[in-house]
């Protein structure tokens, strides 16, 4: 798994932090392939609301996940400032639509606290840990669950 385990060893981690729906999140820089500006996506029929479609990334068809909707936050329509973070999720390459990229952080894995024990689906499913930087709380995302579960192969 690409995910750093926040609770075992003390390691230095590089994290890309970004803002989505007024909140701060981050992912391990090792999962990030590139960061690019927003381009209009081609919508996919019969898809979940958080999949805003596909774009052409140098010849590859890249699905875009609207992170705010996926995390159950208030989403605002993509603007010129919106950014796509291209990440690798278990063999697949996916774009995450976020409001803006903040910075690259270096953090000790020790500084990452386990997420609060809450019943909230989004927190349980997508948050691996929390770290505080200055006065902000930044949630470390679990990428594996962001895409919809693979459909059963049609017979």
């Amino acid at each position: 798994m690409n995910e750093p385990n926040a609770h075992i060893q003390d390691q230095e981690m590089e994290l890309v932090s970004f803002r989505v729906g007024e909140q701060d999140f981050c992912v391990d820089v090792k999962c990030v392939r590139e960061i690019r500006g927003w381009t209009q996506a081609t919508p996919l029929p019969h898809s979940p609301d958080y999949v805003c479609g596909v774009i052409n990334l140098r010849g590859t068809v890249l699905p875009i996940v609207e992170l705010a909707t996926r995390l159950g936050l208030t989403s605002s329509p993509p603007s010129a400032r919106s950014v796509i973070i291209v990440v690798q999720i278990s063999g697949r390459v996916v774009g995450l639509l976020v409001d803006e990229v903040s910075e690259i952080l270096v953090s000790s894995s020790k500084a990452i606290q386990p997420p609060p024990d809450m019943a909230c689906f989004a927190v349980k499913t997508f948050i691996n840990g929390i770290l505080s930087v200055e006065d902000r709380m930044i949630s470390l995302l679990i990428l594996d669950e962001l895409l919809p579960k693979l459909q059963e192969e049609a017979a």
Binding site: T42, L44, P45, H46, V54, G59, T60, V61, R92, V94
Partner: peptide, 19 residues
């Protein structure tokens, strides 16, 4: 022909994608 399954999954009513 570009596969949708490579990075996403099969989508109903869609055979594949192109650019």
């Amino acid at each position: 022909i570009k596969s949708l399954e490579a990075n996403y999954q099969k989508v109903d009513a869609v055979a594949a994608a192109t650019i």
